[in-house]
């Protein structure tokens, strides 16, 4: 159950707490190993709880900030149909953020605290949303690549050991597939269009390809949380495994579109059945995460403004509720 209020069962027995912890930990790991789901009120190690709070809240923040690059094109979509589709997609991202905040709240962290951490810049969100959407082709590329990479990441999360997160991800994944396909369709139309439209599509791919690959996070050898998350069955595949899957799935799609993936080292290895690819610029990744990407300040400022501008609405709703209570 997604209920925060029911989750915070005080550990009642103070005596022999350590002994109990060891036994509880063993029982917990046995449940995880046997693929039993952990639910909100169940005993869990503090590290497991902390990891989930960090991951789920970052995921929620990413969905909320992720509305901005696409929202940027709502008023300029090239047709009423495209506008309606984009509006539905941005609305879905808000919904995904809400499912995820709800899942995180079951772990005992309050919504207000999470929102405050996002607004102050203390909390992280996906690096990808700090890049600008300069042309309409960027909207196609974001749907195709960014949502495509997100799906790659999120499908294994549907089997995550924490029940509320897994259930939220099932819902998200169902909706995400429309996002990716509408993005690919935008690219298909552009790539079959005029030379200028095709060039626009290529330019967007050039700018988004590498940041999309960075979405899977640092290489396995540098990923500090990976091993423990795998043992807890929060993660099912490593960053590098998911990145490879994404590249293998996406390169043929780019070929279908007649677009060139901007990587001189990209080549198919017949023996492994996988694409080999060039070195990722990890300095850029760390710079963007540290707050120095092209749009970090703008994204955060806009989120803060939305929060401030909505304050009177929240207050009025609260006053109305109190009056009618």
């Amino acid at each position: 159950m997604y209920t925060q209020g029911l989750d915070q069962k005080e550990q009642s027995t103070q005596q022999s707490a350590e002994l109990e912890d060891a036994a509880q930990l063993e029982a917990f790991m046995q449940r995880v190993d046997e693929e039993e789901k952990i639910e909100a009120k169940d005993w869990m190690p503090e590290g497991y709880r902390r990891t989930l709070v960090r991951q789920i809240s970052q995921h929620a923040h990413s969905e909320i900030i992720g509305m901005q690059p696409e929202g940027n094109w709502l008023t300029r979509a090239p047709s009423l149909k495209r506008k309606a589709i984009l509006l539905a997609k941005v609305q879905d991202e808000a919904g995904h953020g809400l499912y995820l905040y709800g899942a995180a709240e079951t772990l005992g962290v309050s919504r207000d605290q999470m929102v405050a951490n996002l607004l102050s810049g203390k909390a992280k969100y996906s690096s990808i949303f700090n890049y600008p959407t300069l042309t309409w082709a960027d909207i196609g590329t974001v749907g195709w690549l960014v949502d495509g990479a997100a799906i790659m990441n999120q499908i294994p999360l549907c089997r995550c050991s924490y029940g509320p997160y897994a259930r939220a991800m099932v819902r998200v994944c169902k909706e995400e597939s429309f996002h990716q396909r509408q993005g690919f369709e935008i690219m298909l139309v552009l790539s079959r269009g005029t030379d200028a439209q095709k060039a626009m599509a290529q330019d967007a791919l050039n700018r988004w390809w590498w940041p999309a690959l960075m979405m899977f996070g640092p290489s396995d050898k540098d990923s500090k949380h990976s091993a423990q998350s795998m043992a807890w069955k929060i993660k099912r595949f490593s960053n590098d495994e998911l990145r490879q899957k994404f590249i293998d799935a996406t390169v043929p799609q780019a070929e279908f579109l007649g677009l060139r993936v901007p990587d001189d080292d990209l080549k198919f290895n017949e023996d492994t059945g996988h694409y080999e690819f060039g070195e990722i610029d990890w300095q850029e990744f760390h710079d963007v995460l540290a707050g120095n990407g092209p749009c970090n300040k703008q994204r955060l400022a806009k989120r803060n403004k939305a929060q401030d501008d909505g304050a009177w609405v929240r207050e009025a709703a609260r006053a109305y509720a109190d009056k009618h209570a």
């Binding site: 997604y2 925060q4 709800g102 309050s110 304050a311 709703a317 609260r318 509720a321």
Partner: peptide
């Protein structure tokens, strides 16, 4: 500044003939 909106649990009947099922939670003023 103001107090957080209370938490609600949401139950949805997918179609007539099925029982309501827990879908998730949300915050609302009333």
């Amino acid at each position: 500044s103001n107090k957080a909106w209370p938490l609600y649990e949401v139950f949805i009947r997918a179609k007539a003939g099925l029982s309501h099922r827990h879908a998730g939670s949300l915050h609302a003023a009333d």
